[in-house]
Amino acid sequence: MAEATFRLRMCYAKTGRLAYLSHLELVRALERLIRRSGLPFAVTQGFSAHMRHAPGPALPVGTRGLGELFDVWLTEYVKAEPALHALRRATVPGLEIREVTYVDPKAKGLAATHVIEDYSLEIQLGRGAMAEASAPEAVGAAAEAGAGAGAGVGAAAEAGAAAGVAAGAATEPLFLLKQGLARLLETGEVTIERKKGRREQRKTYDLRAGLVAAPCFCASEEAEGRYQVAMTLRSGPQGSIRPDVLLRAALAASDAPLDLAIRSSTRLALAEEELAAKS
């Protein structure tokens, strides 16, 4: 069998309905489109032969990706231009192949390299009864930080109820969210507990390494409490924190009974070394 000597890096956008694909589903869709494209992809040897590829960091379900990465190994060199055309002909709406480049076949895998992820989200923030319901995803350091600040949920709720009278900046939902975020950043890490079936999973993320640019908020004119949020994360071999999870953790750390709904989420991912090369 021919050697797998050429490593083609595809940069693609995943938008529209395809935002709802899970990481595994997306990988399968990419594999199938590469097969349809007719490119001479390499196949692994052994027990269960499959296409040799390396996907970039997982994109959370529901998130659009504008610059996502996927490496596939080829057995023959195909010029970038015709390769791009072949992939574009074979693709599906919502999966746009933006560019292809060849990278060093011996470079570390995409999952092992650091990838810079630019996120932009649209959120809806409000006071509400759902604060409790959204809490279970995020506690740990966040909750401790909250306890340290001495504000119980009950007290905060009262403060919220009183907000109508003493309308001050200190009770603005955005202010409270930012306050929670500041507490998280102070501790430098966030611990997420998640229920997987019956098992509880705990994972601690290092925010000093994982958060390149802290969330910044821009009020939207469309509705009260709606914001565009931008943040830059860095994913590494241990994975990365999801932006919605980070915001919810901040919410929990704020100790205020707030509601947070993610209306949309978009990401642009780039391998760090490329970023360095480009600048």
């Binding site: 309905r17 709802y20 694909l21 589903e25 489109l33 379900v61 529901g62 599906v92 919502g94 993610i262």
Partner: peptide
């Protein structure tokens, strides 16, 4: 339907528009 998809299990089964 789309706004409901973030709160249901395995939303990709409801998006249609598959290849072919």
């Amino acid at each position: 339907i789309e706004p409901l998809l973030s709160s249901v299990e395995r939303p990709s089964r409801y998006i249609g528009h598959e290849h072919n």
